[in-house]
Each structure stands twice: as C-alpha cells, then as structure tokens.
C-alpha cells in the first residue's frame, strides 16, 4: 500500500494576537505547528501501514522552515518526506496549492491512498483535499471519521455529515480528508526522533514537478486577498459585578429589550 499524507505547517492560533493599531497579525514569537487535523491524517496513515504494509510519504508545500513539520511526521513513523518549496509557489491559493500538490503526487507516481486533514487552521478552507482529488481525477471521501475496511483494491469509510454519517465504498486510488474523531495521534518514539533528525528531505521546485507559469503561486491563483482586517469585537460589553441578584435582573432586562429571550 502506497500512502501519501499532505501536511501543512501553520502558526499556532493559540498565540495569535492582533496589533490593535495596524489590525495585523503579530507573528513574532508565534510557534509553528503541524496543522492539528493533519496529525490525525499522519496517525491514520501509520495505522493503515500497520494493517496493510507499504510505505508512507509525507508532502508539504511551504517555506524552507516547513521542513520541521516533515521531520515531525518522520519521527512519528512516516517513511519518506518531500518539501515543495520555492519563491515561485508563494501566494498560492487553494487552486494553485492543490495543483502543485497534485503535480508532486504525480511525480511520486504510485499511490493508493492520499490523506489530508479536514482543513488547515490558518486558512480554514477545507478546499485543498478535494482540489487535489479533482486535479488527479480520483474519487474522494471527505470528513472521514472511520475507515471500516481496506483491501489492496478498495476502501470503505464513514463520512461525517451534519445529521449523522454516510458509509461510502470506493476503489483505490482515493483521497480522504480526516476529522478529529478518526483516531488519537501517538507521540513520537525516541528512535523515531533520531531517524527523523538524520533523514534526507529532498526539496522540489517547479522544474522538478514540471509546473510553472500561470498555474502556480500568485499567478496561478484565481483568488486575490484584497483586504485583511480585525473582526469587530463584541467586547467592551456591559459587565455586571457585585450583587448577583441585581446583576441577573440587569441581564434579563438587557436580553428582553434586545428581544433575545
């Protein structure tokens, strides 16, 4: 079984702060982590390999420092990793990102299952997974919360929906995006960490995956961010302190006059 996991390095949103004067993100000292949903994708890849054997390749497109995300994946049990990195990829939206990842996956060649996280916590789009499947013209199962069965030809999985779940069957190759419910990620072993530290991680640029021009980076991106601004904060609201009974009366009064209750 040849498994590919797409992972993204993201700033840890726990620490993100907005500069109130400029309405911009303060990134100083913000730690980068592997997108939490991708940790479930890595774990699921390892479990699939434990069940069926095979090889796992982790893939990321990002700046040079995204290499550390790949080393983390290697320490957990991923076999190989590839970093897709070049200034020409900067500014990629989900169309260009999924095109670039799909091109790299084509170059890797053989693949049975591609795993992605449900969404990345920076962009929150959930579009890259289905985008990769569309570029490769393979079936997809999104929001997978359980893999029920897998053979060397097909897979059966549960897709989470608002009102319950769907059970789907698909031939391989297939792309899955996974949600938190699917597993509990393991911690890296000491041996894994050693191996990860020493591993060679190739860096692929546009020539390596035969892409360029109006398909990658900012040029290849149909969308364009026109403006970034801080959301209106509800804050500096009315805070009632002191006597509980009084506070409750005031609250009920406010909610009633706002026709909220």
């Amino acid at each position: 079984m040849q498994i590919i996991v797409c992972i993204k390095q993201v700033p840890d949103t726990t620490n993100i702060k907005i500069n109130p004067e400029t309405n911009t993100l303060i990134r100083e000292g913000v730690e980068c982590i592997v997108n939490p949903f991708d940790m479930y994708a890595i774990e699921e890849a390892i479990r699939l390999k434990e069940r069926c054997g095979g090889k796992i390749t982790a893939l990321t497109m990002g700046p040079p420092q995204a290499e550390s995300a790949l080393r983390e994946a290697l320490s957990l049990g991923v076999d190989e990793a590839v970093l897709i990195s070049n200034r020409a990829f900067a500014g990629s939206d989900t169309w260009a990102t999924s095109f670039t990842l799909a091109s790299a996956i084509r170059k890797i060649g053989h693949y049975d299952i591609i795993l992605c996280g449900k969404q990345a916590i920076d962009g929150d789009t959930a579009q890259v997974g289905p985008g990769v499947a569309a570029h490769l013209n393979i079936p997809q199962i999104t929001f997978v919360k359980k893999i029920e069965e897998v053979t060397d030809r097909s897979i059966r999985a549960e897709r989470m929906m608002e009102e319950g779940f769907q059970i789907l069957e698909s031939p391989l190759p297939v792309l899955l995006t996974v949600v938190k419910e699917i597993n509990e990620p393991r911690l890296p072993s000491l041996r894994g960490k050693m191996k990860a530290r020493k591993a060679d991680i190739p860096v692929w640029g546009p020539e390596d995956i035969d892409v360029g021009g109006d398909q990658i980076g900012l040029n290849g991106s149909p969308t364009y961010v026109a403006k970034i601004f801080a959301p209106e904060r509800k804050g500096s609201g009315k805070i009632f302190r002191g006597d509980a009974e009084e506070a409750v009366d005031q609250l009920i009064h406010e909610l009633r006059s706002g026709k909220l209750i």
Partner: peptide, 13 residues
C-alpha cells in the same frame, strides 16, 4: 473569517 476568526479577509476573483 480566517485564522480561526482572529482576522477577516475580503477576497476577490
């Protein structure tokens, strides 16, 4: 919203 609602972005095609 992006970055978990920490910022808003206006996007054009």
């Amino acid at each position: 919203p992006a970055f978990g609602g920490n910022i808003m972005a206006t996007i054009l095609t």
